[in-house]
Design a protein around this nucleic acid. Sequence first.
DNA 1: ACCTGAACACCGTTCAAGT
DNA 2: ACCTGAACACCGTTCAAGT
Lengths: 234, 234
Amino acid sequence: MATQTDAPAQPRIPLTRDRVLRAAVDLADSGGIDAVSMRKVGQQLGVEAMSLYNHVANKEEILDGMIEIVMGEIEAASGGFDVPEDGAGWKAAMRARILTAREAMLRHPWAPSVLETRTAMSPLMLRYADSLLGILREGGFSYDLGHHAMHALGSRMLGFTQELFEPENKEQADEEAEAMLAKMAVQLPYITGMVMEVAHDDPDSTLGWCDDQSEFEFGLDLILEGLERIRDTA
Amino acid sequence: MATQTDAPAQPRIPLTRDRVLRAAVDLADSGGIDAVSMRKVGQQLGVEAMSLYNHVANKEEILDGMIEIVMGEIEAASGGFDVPEDGAGWKAAMRARILTAREAMLRHPWAPSVLETRTAMSPLMLRYADSLLGILREGGFSYDLGHHAMHALGSRMLGFTQELFEPENKEQADEEAEAMLAKMAVQLPYITGMVMEVAHDDPDSTLGWCDDQSEFEFGLDLILEGLERIRDTA
DNA sequence: ACCTGAACACCGTTCAAGT
DNA sequence: ACCTGAACACCGTTCAAGT
């Protein structure tokens, strides 16, 4: 019968920066970003929290590294960040690259909130941004309009938008929203009208009926087509 | 000479929910959101942290209340959240209301980040959203397209966009970005080209040359005009 | 060279005790 | 009814001590 004083079956795997970062990503994937604390990452690796400081300067560096891992996944899934030569296909290329980024964000739901707190761009992030600007440039955009385009896309460039009021408990939030809407119906005539129309068209719908993916694509296409129009009239 | 045991000159102002929330907003305005802790808000009011719990349930309720104060400022600056009758002016009305919201966000730089962490919509927030949907509706939009429009606007609806990589120290960030750009120039051909063109047109420019306000308005107008086009072709 | 234990200066929150 | 002191269960990080 094994006891706690038994020597480990296999020699301990040495701690490295990469193992620290992967442990942090695993923890965040399974338990959310609050599960990433120095103590918990250490625990995950069978080590005290203080040992991590031999491999990363501080927690910020762990968060930076986690984003770099996500960007690496986007790069791999995109087949690299090279700019395709076919400038005529710029819109499809932008769309594909951004939707690939979005898939990584959906795999790592903590990534958008961590990204927002980064104060410096990582190398892979810069490579990604350069590739998007390159696609626009080869598609006939001036640097100036390309620059505006990147700002107009904002976080959509990385495959997500600020989801305001993303509830933790969707069911409970739905109930609360329904109650508030009932109470404020007279003060919210347009929202009430919209919800009634949706309920009429689809009696099974709930208040949180939006399809995030198609809303994302709607907004993305709106911007890409608007940019094309400006390019052609300027 | 006053001592610590002297009675206060004036009778102590009673603590109220409203005083707690205003103290929190003042602290955040002057010291950033990290300055808002239960202990520091208590200190600001000459009271122990634990006393706050007699007036708010927890810190989340303080953050909710801070947002409600900002929304109240937007409502006041907008002259109320009524929907103007002139449907033809929908685009100007949307633009004005959103830019008014933006002014409040610029006065309270902590507000966007706090907003992102809210999980439920406040009454004033709902009133604001209803008024935007109303402007679209009176401007001839279907509920369905109006709903897409709100998603396409995202956080721009409230006057801000996700500013990815907003540095704390702009000067230092500019230096770091310049160094990284120099090192990675060959891997970042398009960004390098863009920066060189800007430097050529305006030798005094720095890397952080963007005009946030005009970039915001560019993106906003792009979306509003795209929506108008869809409305007219659908 | 790497890991650890104790400690420091913070958090939000609970609870029993004061007035 | 309102306020407080002590405590709990957490944080990130520093430092001296171990091996």
